[in-house]
Design a binder for these strands. Structure first.
Length: 276
DNA sequence: AAACTTCGCAACCGCAAGGTT
DNA sequence: TAACCTTGCGGTTGCGAAGTT
């Protein structure tokens, strides 16, 4: 198992992505997919390493990314899955459609963990002491509070580094759908992008499927970006069909995955019971 | 109103797994 | 089968925004 040297850093950009870079990446992936991340930036004319492109796509540009606050249900699911799976963020993310492992990891570290710690302390009879008093998120999030928080549209940060503040669009994807169809193949990823990039209709359907109120979606989508890059029209159905046929039998075993999820969750429950 | 503190999150880093040659 | 290559993952960091003093 060798290890490829990380991207040669000379001449490569780092840090926040510019809208132009985003657009270039989206456009390239729309046209060619991403069979080879390492070669992608070169072909796409980006001064980034492949790793950076991949992360940007997966965590931010993928059209099926769901943004905005986590719902109470999602947070609860994360907590439960974390009990079962530990820090396997990608596995957890697979159960949360539209959420990325990075995002889940962030949420965990920023407040779920604290919440649990505080709850544990409270349960242990120790007074909760918090030095911080930041209205935004300082208080431990009780489930009800979490729910309230979750339904509050997130405030966009206009000054954020990237102008593509949020896609706000979702799609039940092949890779990270509720059916937990995990996919790592480029073809499937391309399909994912096709599916996601496809159409707002689909995305809206997916939103409905996932039972998330549209108010949870951030209003701060930079529509100009999506319209200027014509993301919704980027992948025509022909492309998609082609890619679907390429992926062929990769309608992965959602049944299996559901089974294992169920098992894990049940195991978690049983463990909880055991603790009790 | 300015300085300071805290938080959220995008992005980076390094490692490991798995595929290919 | 060993070396190489690419991708994926988890931990961590840095920066900008928001809140507090």
């Amino acid at each position: 198992m060798g290890r490829a040297p990380c991207c040669e850093k000379e001449g490569l950009r780092r840090g926040a992505w510019s809208p132009e870079e985003d657009e270039r990446l989206v456009e390239y992936i729309r046209r060619h997919g991403h069979p080879n991340w390492r070669a992608l930036p070169k072909h796409a004319g980006l001064l980034r390493c492949g790793k950076s492109c991949r992360l940007r796509w997966i965590n931010y540009l993928r059209p099926d990314i769901k943004r905005g606050n986590f719902t109470a249900d999602e947070e609860e699911l994360i907590v439960r899955l974390h009990q079962s799976l530990g820090n396997r963020w990608s596995a957890i993310a697979a159960q949360l459609p539209g959420r990325t492992d990075n995002e889940i990891k962030n949420v965990w570290h920023t407040h779920l963990k604290k919440t649990l710690d505080d709850e544990r302390k409270a349960a242990a009879g120790r007074p909760q002491t918090r030095k911080k008093s930041k209205a935004k998120s300082a208080a431990p999030i009780a489930p009800a509070a979490a729910a309230e928080r979750a339904t509050t549209p997130s405030v966009a940060s206009p000054g954020r580094s990237s102008s593509v503040t949020s896609s706000g669009v979702t799609c039940s994807t092949v890779t990270e759908s509720a059916a937990a169809v995990s996919s790592s193949s480029p073809d499937q990823a391309a399909i994912t992008s096709a599916c996601g990039g496809h159409h707002k209709q689909q995305q809206q359907l997916a939103v409905k499927e996932e039972s998330f109120s549209s108010t949870e979606l951030p209003a701060a989508i930079d529509e100009s970006f999506w319209s200027s890059t014509d993301v919704t029209g980027m992948m025509d159905l022909g492309d998609m069909d082609e890619e679907l046929s390429l992926a062929g039998s990769s309608s992965v075993r959602s049944d299996d995955m559901e089974f294992w999820l169920k098992m894990l969750l049940e195991a978690g429950d049983m463990r909880d019971l055991a603790v009790l």
